[in-house]
Amino acid sequence: MITASHPRAEGGGLSGLLLVALPVALLIWLVLWPVLQAVVGTVYFPGKGFSLSSYAFFFTDAYSLRNLWLTLWVTALTSALRVAVAMPIALYLRFRSGSIAALVQSLALFPLFVPSVLVAYAFIRVLGPNGIVDTVLVALGLPKLPTPYLTPAGPIIGLVWERLPLTLLLLLSGLGRVSIASVDAARDLGAGGLTIFSRIILPRIQSSIIVALAFNVLGLFSAFTLPYLLGPASPEMMGPYMQRTFSDNADPLNATTQAVITFAFCAAFGLVYVRAIARGRRGPA
């Protein structure tokens, strides 16, 4: 009698769990446990009991709210700009080949290999007061332009440039699922470039755009180096604000409260990311 052997599902499941055990353990130890500690540390005070006073302070303090608002709109604008700048480059790289496309790809990915501090100082040298742009304008007998250095525009320009490659790679990954034949088919039926983009390409890379935006928001909301070096002193983004509250003001409770609030915003966008991934896995883009 011939019998077929069946791999035991339980064994496969156990192997899978063992494979993820180490990263999950690290996640619990290095992320979830400190988060839990931070949350508990901001709402429970030994000997005094529960209190939401630090949160009440944050959400009633005008300066904290201005910082939160600045962080929110800088994050939103930078994310949108990154996608807006990366999209045409991604479309070009997806549907063109050759030496010029290779050059464009190299230039677009170059910021990936430049540390944030270098970006900041390069920015200051080029766009800062008496920087290269000013020097050129003066040499041409033109008036100097208002510098974006130490204004909200400073970190926005720096942050857009710094993380453009990541957005580009995410969009390229999504566009990889849009076949050239499907674009050709639309052209063949009479569609122009804008129609192809809005009705054929865009609906099929929605998940990738959401993922790119979510990744951007997660990185931007707690960005430190560029907002610290290029941004205004007041209001300031949450990253520098937290650092200053903790170090300069020696106020760990409020710094932790700011961190928990920042984490809550990031977690919300993290959920958007997880949902987008789940949606992408359920069906074709």
């Binding site: 076949s179 499907s182 050709d184 088919a185 609906p203 099929r204 069906g283 074709p284 883009a285």
Partner: peptide, 10 residues
């Protein structure tokens, strides 16, 4: 008519 059908899945 393309080899890969090239239908729009959405």
């Amino acid at each position: 008519v393309f080899q890969s059908h090239a239908l729009w899945s959405h």
